[in-house]
Design a binder for these strands. Sequence first.
DNA 1: CCATATGTTACTCG
DNA 2: ACGAGTAACATATG
Length: 282
Amino acid sequence: MPELPEVQTVVTELKNFFLKKNSLSKIDILNQSSIVLTKDIPLNSFLKKNISSISRQGKYIIISLENNLYIIIHLRMTGHLFLNQKEEFKKHTRVVFYLKDEKTVIFHDTRKFGKVYFSNSLDFLKNKIGIDPFDSSFKQDAFIEKIHKSKQSIKSILLSQKIVCGLGNIYVDEVLWQSKIHPLEQGYNISNEQIIALYNAIKTVLSEGIKNKGCSLGKGISNFMNTQGEFGKHQLSLNIYGKEKMPCPICKNKIQKTKVNQRSTYFCSKCQSEKIPSSFLE
DNA sequence: CCATATGTTACTCG
DNA sequence: ACGAGTAACATATG
């Protein structure tokens, strides 16, 4: 169930793992619905091509090969990439990548929502999602302008990935609490000062998640794990998510739980000013 | 059996 | 076109 910090944790480990020049020698597809092929490009054209870089945009992992070929992976809710882990995670293994030097990368996904895209272009990412918060093109002024153009609730905006990408249900709640914005506040109704606070909170909260090597709530195989099968530590640093009825760390008010976009949403009604329905503003 | 789950997308209706 | 709301995908856990 990875968001940006969990995906970054995996990407960092993949980079270290692939450090030397490497290429794929074989790809086993154990579940056809876990992959998406590009028309007219056979799977075996991805073999024996040097891996040139491993990067990330939002929650998408991008493995770039020579000749402008790309393997793009989205882990969705329960996807994992395991390095050189064999037997213990066998049950839900969907794709196995065999590397030239005998190493293996396993794409493991209990719920089968995740996808491995084999593509010759990154265009579909560009059209689909907004700016990554750690990209140098993520600028305060443009962010304010885009938020102000939207009538949607701020939580919907952030979950949509369209303006800024990488935030999911946990980090959105953390970021909104940090910047004292109610999750249902509409974009055009948020002050410049609050959007600046939000902009800064996005960077600091996500950076902390990365430092903690991701967030692993709950337990079991569906929970987030790094490429070695280890849990992250960021669950210990959460302030608001999953803390219904517990005191807000700042004002001690009881944290409330509601639903926004069908997703559990936690907030402090004192710190995060109540949304005033527009019908009351006539 | 019921509800819930760190994600996304397709569909409807207004 | 936009936004809200709903269901769907598939599986595990409490």
